[in-house]
Amino acid sequence: MKKKPLDRLNKFIIFALLSIFAVVSLLPLYWVFSTSLQLSSYQSMDMERPVSYVDSNPPKMYPMGIPLYFEHWKGEREAKKAGDAELEAYHQAQMDHIVSNTFGSFKSLFKKHDVGKWFFNSLYIAVVVTVGILLIDSMAGYVLAKKRFPGRNLIFWIIISTMMIPGQVTLVPLFIMVGNLNLMDTHWALILPDLSMVFGVFLMRQFMYSIPDELLEAAKMDGASEWRTFWTVVLPLAKPGLAALGIFTFMNVWNSFLWPIIVLNTAELYTLPVGLKTLQDANLASFKLLMSGAAVAAIPMIIVFILFQRYFVQGLTLGGVKE
């Protein structure tokens, strides 16, 4: 097929249009990082009072520390050449101030607030739940797909039918139950209900169907136990499904919010989203600080997304396949 010039023009217009939409959709995320690194106090020789570029109208579209640092760096070199020690020291002090102010909110997040702890809590809860879900749901999905036993279909349909019920329905009973089990304000109150999510059973069952029966038979012939077959034959074959499920579980747990704000009351136990809410409640107008907190919470998911993008797509298209 030969390309017509009109085709190329069309493609260019589409590309330009999509770029505009992409910029709009990524702007809030950019704004988080831009504000978190914005200079919140700066005073040069010709200014009467220090200014904040966070609260400025019109807004500064990028961290002002970058051009100002460069300016002072040039100034410092010129002062050095001219042999003006006083001016050189002034520029140096300004440069130090710019660096410490730009990253200052991150420093105070980790020093004055418990962000480091919240980050760790979120991370370890997400990892524990993800590993647990992968094991538990692949076990369940495997037998539901590959074994025939009385009650198989009944169990599957009971589990799947609860996927239709919105999570809010069980909030109150779960709250009472967690209280009765003496788990209130502990991480178990988050981990156990998260491990009970049913989506993974559905996903893994779908996935396990594609494993050839002959391989399972062969393993049986070799005298492998059920567990060995599962561990050495089934799991390696289910890797793509596990990857997709793992990523979605991690994302859901990392971002989960409603249930954690209900059961957690101790600042030390907060997960990042809960911590960010209390941070916002206490510092309603310190947008540089708030955006720094938001940035800390956003970075891990962005990294996970970039590394495992392929599996995001896979997981979505797998999960959407209806029988």
Binding site: F21, L29, V32, A297, M301, F305, Q309
Partner: peptide, 23 residues
């Protein structure tokens, strides 16, 4: 473009809400 449009979806709503309150 798929990534550009999907990236905001993996970001926690808490973060998106915070930055929009600021915007």
């Amino acid at each position: 473009f798929r990534s550009a449009f999907y990236l905001p979806t993996v970001t926690s709503m808490v973060i998106i809400a915070m930055v929009w309150r600021w915007m």
